[in-house]
């Protein structure tokens, strides 16, 4: 792997940590400390992924994400302080692919980075079958199998699980899920999402308080975890 990662981070020690970690795992990296030079670097170097800190000295990282989304589908991972749930949700809703909170573990960041890069390369393919460990979705026949047995799902449970399977290992905000599965106008009806996640967990998780598939990102949304490697 030799992808070029662009880091936009104004905290020097975090930047250094990221640079060293990326180098260690055979990524190339370029970095900058503010929005202005970030755009310049992005346009001149054409990186494969962006790591963006939300609090930048010359403005909001979200603004930068918005600008990037107007011209590119490049994967974006947001770095933020833990208490900024609203910031994170906003960033995800305007098009960031994933987030990580400070203080973060490098392993977690690398895992999310790989997933984002992989998803980007697979993005264009139209799949007829999605397999995630014990779960198998056949899109044409609308069947989902769990441990080779057909799952009995209500239509909404099916739509929800399908949406999760199409977006594995990605943080999905409550709003995004409600909009995609229930439709526009349902963005704030959290009770539906909570209830259906609960019933879905009962069907696919061995221990619903230690979920291995549907992981809760507290205050933000859910992440459907799927480890192929």
């Amino acid at each position: 792997m030799n992808e070029l990662i662009q880091i936009i981070e104004d905290d020097i020690s975090v930047k250094k940590l990221l640079e060293i970690a990326l180098k260690e795992y055979k990524f190339r990296s370029i970095s900058c400390e503010n929005k202005k030079s970030a755009m310049m670097l992005f346009l001149t170097h054409n990186p494969s992924l962006l790591i963006v800190d939300l609090g930048l000295p010359d403005g909001d990282g979200k603004e930068f994400i918005k600008q990037i989304r107007e011209i590119s589908k490049i994967p974006i991972i947001v770095v933020s302080a833990r208490h900024d749930e609203k910031e994170i949700i906003d960033a995800l809703d305007i098009g960031a692919d994933d987030y990580i909170t400070k203080p973060f573990s490098i392993n977690e960041l690398l895992a999310r980075l790989r997933v984002a890069l992989r998803r980007n390369t697979h993005d264009e393919k139209i799949l007829d079958k999605i397999i995630c460990t014990d779960i198998e979705l056949n899109i044409a026949s609308r069947d989902i199998f769990f441990k080779a047995e057909k799952l009995k799902l209500t239509p909404i449970e099916y739509e929800l699980l399908k949406y999760f399977l199409l977006n594995t290992n990605k943080t999905l905000t409550h709003k995004q899920i409600l909009k995609e599965v229930w439709g526009i106008g349902y963005q704030n009806e959290m009770q539906y999402l909570r209830t259906y996640v609960n019933t879905l967990r009962k069907k696919i998780e061995e221990n619903s308080t230690r979920p291995t598939y549907i992981k809760t990102e507290s205050g933000i949304g859910y992440r459907f975890s799927c480890h192929k490697d």
Binding site: V197, S208, T209, R210
Partner: peptide, 23 residues
Amino acid sequence: YEWCDFEDILGVVLKDFSQTQHD
């Protein structure tokens, strides 16, 4: 205020106590 699922909350809490001895 929002609708909370205690099972979900417990899951989030347990993630922070993930060492095997705790289970």
